[in-house]
C-alpha cells in the first residue's frame, strides 16, 4: 500500500498512519483524529471548563499536532497518544494563562464552595458528574490536580511546567483533594 493510498481501516498500524500523516494524507489524518478525539476532548474539558472553549482548544491542539507531525518520531503503541496529550495539555494551559492568572488567592475556593451542588458518591457517579466535580475546582487547584492525577506528573515537573514552586504545587493538590473529599463525603 502506497503512502498516498486512501485505503485505511481502523486496524491500520498507527506507525503507518503517522507516516502517511507526515505526507499530509487527509484520510490518515482523519483516522488518527477520530481515534483520539474523544479522549482529547475529555482532557480539554477537565482543564477548560467551558464547552466552546474546550472545543476551540481541541481544534488548535489537533491542528498543531498535524502541522508538527514531521518532528514526531513514532516509538510504538501509545507514543501518539502521549504526544497528543502533551500538546493538548500545553494548549489548555496556554488558554488558561491567556484568560486570567491560573493561580489566585483562596477567594475562588469560597465562591466555589457556595456553588457546589449535591453529588453522589464517586462509585455511583457517571462521567458527567465526575467531570462536573473536577470542573468545579478553582483553576489553579484543578490544573495541578489534573496534571498530578490524570497526567501522572510529579510536583517537580508540575512546578516546572506551571512555573511555580514544588511546594505551591503540593499545597494546590492538597487543597484540591480537600475540596473533592469534602464534596464527596457531603453526598454520602
Amino acid at each position: 500500500m502506497g503512502l498516498n493510498s486512501y485505503e485505511f481501516s481502523n486496524n491500520t498500524d498507527e506507525g503507518y498512519l503517522v507516516k502517511c500523516c507526515k505526507n499530509n494524507n487527509p484520510a490518515a489524518q482523519k483516522l488518527l483524529y477520530k481515534k483520539y478525539e474523544g479522549a482529547m476532548m475529555i482532557l480539554c474539558l477537565r482543564y477548560v471548563v467551558d464547552y466552546e472553549d474546550a472545543k476551540e482548544v481541541l481544534m488548535d491542539g489537533f491542528y498543531s499536532f498535524f502541522k508538527n507531525i514531521g518532528r514526531f518520531s513514532y516509538l510504538g503503541e501509545g507514543s501518539v497518544k502521549a504526544w497528543l496529550t502533551k500538546i493538548l495539555v500545553n494548549q489548555c494551559l496556554s488558554f488558561l494563562r491567556k484568560r486570567k492568572p491560573i493561580f489566585s488567592t483562596g477567594k475562588d475556593l469560597d465562591s466555589y464552595e457556595n456553588k457546589w451542588a449535591e453529588e453522589n458518591v464517586l462509585d455511583n457517579m457517571n462521567i458527567k458528574e465526575i467531570m462536573k466535580l473536577v470542573q468545579s475546582l478553582p483553576d489553579g487547584y484543578r490544573t495541578v490536580f489534573n496534571l498530578y492525577v490524570f497526567e501522572g506528573m510529579n510536583h517537580r515537573e508540575i512546578g516546572e511546567m506551571l512555573e511555580i514552586s514544588e511546594n505551591t504545587s503540593k499545597s494546590q493538590l492538597h487543597k484540591a483533594r480537600e475540596i473533592l473529599k469534602k464534596k464527596i463525603l457531603q453526598t454520602i
Binding site: 475529555i42 464517586l122 462521567i127 465526575i130 492525577v149 490524570f150 464527596i184
Partner: peptide
C-alpha cells in the same frame, strides 16, 4: 501518592466516552 479515590477517578475518566459526556 495518589489516593484511592483518585485512582478510581482516573479509571472512570479513562473509560469514559465522549458521546456519554456530550
Amino acid at each position: 501518592m495518589a489516593l484511592d479515590f483518585e485512582k478510581l477517578l482516573k479509571e472512570k475518566m479513562d473509560e469514559a466516552s465522549l458521546n456519554e459526556l456530550i
